[in-house]
Amino acid sequence: MFGSGLLKGLAITWKEMLTPKVTIQYPDEIYSLPDRFHGRFKLDKDACISCGMCVRACPNNVIKMETETVARKKRLLKYVMDIKYCLFCGFCVESCPKNALGYEKDFELAQYKLDKVPLVLVDEEPLPPEEKERLEAEAAQKIAAAKAKKEASGGKDKGGE
């Protein structure tokens, strides 16, 4: 019949009008994100050994890391990701030998002020000099004690020979 295509079109749009809508009303309801979603980064401060692998893995030099060495141990002072250059490739997370770096299921990273954009994961003051000295002295003492113990036990062995 002439014009049946027009009616068919109308029928299709009518049916479409009555189908349930799949739009997710974003601020009210949030789409359930998949497990491997690359969102905001999180850092397990205690697990991190400040090796700097993530800094080297980053293709855009997003990660800035500051450390101090106290008693021959690296201590993390600052871990800042300038997220505006981040392309969420995930190389940093992959490269982490201790699995300290990971993702959160959070994509709301927009900020009103530019200086709020960088993602500050760790921001600690360097230790005061007295505390540093104390720790270093303690460590030196420990090392000395261990050395003495070793020497003492080593001397015995020698003597036995």
């Binding site: 749009t13 479409e16 009008m17 009555l18 189908t19 809508k21 799949v22 739009t23 009303q25």
Partner: peptide, 13 residues
């Protein structure tokens, strides 16, 4: 609203 519903969305809300 009609446009939205025909295009499988909600329209202004």
């Amino acid at each position: 609203k009609v446009a939205g519903y025909i295009q499988c969305r909600y329209g202004p809300n």
